[in-house]
């Protein structure tokens, strides 16, 4: 029975000291501690939220970047294609110009060659004519050197004439 009989002294001191402890702890410990824990939890939560937002932003940026990259690649391809076309055009144009120029030159050369050929032929003709005249002269001179032969010839010619 002694064990389950609360003694008034202990009840009194426990009550007094517990209430003082409660007040002191409430003021000195629990308020600042709970506030600090609460603040820290909130700041951690904020940080996590911010991290989440930053991650979303990052992924958004990266998709944007990718799109930009894709666009740039397409543009580059386009530019390359255009450049190639331009090059081909220029080359073709150059080729054409060169061809016409060449053709012109060839034409000119042909005309020149022809002219030269004609000139050369004329000269050859003149040479041949003069040569023939010389030869004929020489032959005639030879023929008329001998009197008999001249007579024979004349008789021959006359014979022919008679026959006619």
């Amino acid at each position: 029975m002694e064990l389950v009989t609360p003694s008034i002294g202990l009840v009194f001191w426990t009550l007094v000291s517990f209430l003082i402890l409660l007040m002191l702890l409430k003021k000195l410990a629990w308020k600042p501690v709970l506030a600090a824990i609460h603040d820290r939890e909130r700041s951690i939560e904020d940080a996590l939220n911010k991290a989440e937002l930053a991650r979303a932003e990052m992924s958004r940026l990266s998709t944007e970047n990718e799109a930009l990259l894709k666009e740039a690649r397409v543009e580059r391809d386009q530019i390359l294609k255009e450049a190639k076309e331009l090059k081909d055009q220029i080359v073709a144009e150059a080729k054409n110009a060169a061809q016409t120029e060449g053709a012109k030159l060839i034409e000119k050369a042909k005309i020149e060659i022809n002219n030269q050929k004609i000139a050369a032929l004329d000269e050859v003709k003149n040479q041949v004519a003069s040569l023939s005249l010389e030869i004929a002269e020489k032959v005639l001179r030879k023929q008329f050197d001998d009197k008999q032969k001249q007579d024979a010839l004349v008789s021959d010619l006359l014979k022919d004439v008679k026959l006619n």
Binding site: S17, L21, L24, L25, L28, A29, W30, P32, V33, I37
Partner: peptide
Amino acid sequence: IIVILLIFVSVAGAY
């Protein structure tokens, strides 16, 4: 009570 106060007042100080 002194032990409890010492513990928690120092903890509150740390906070």
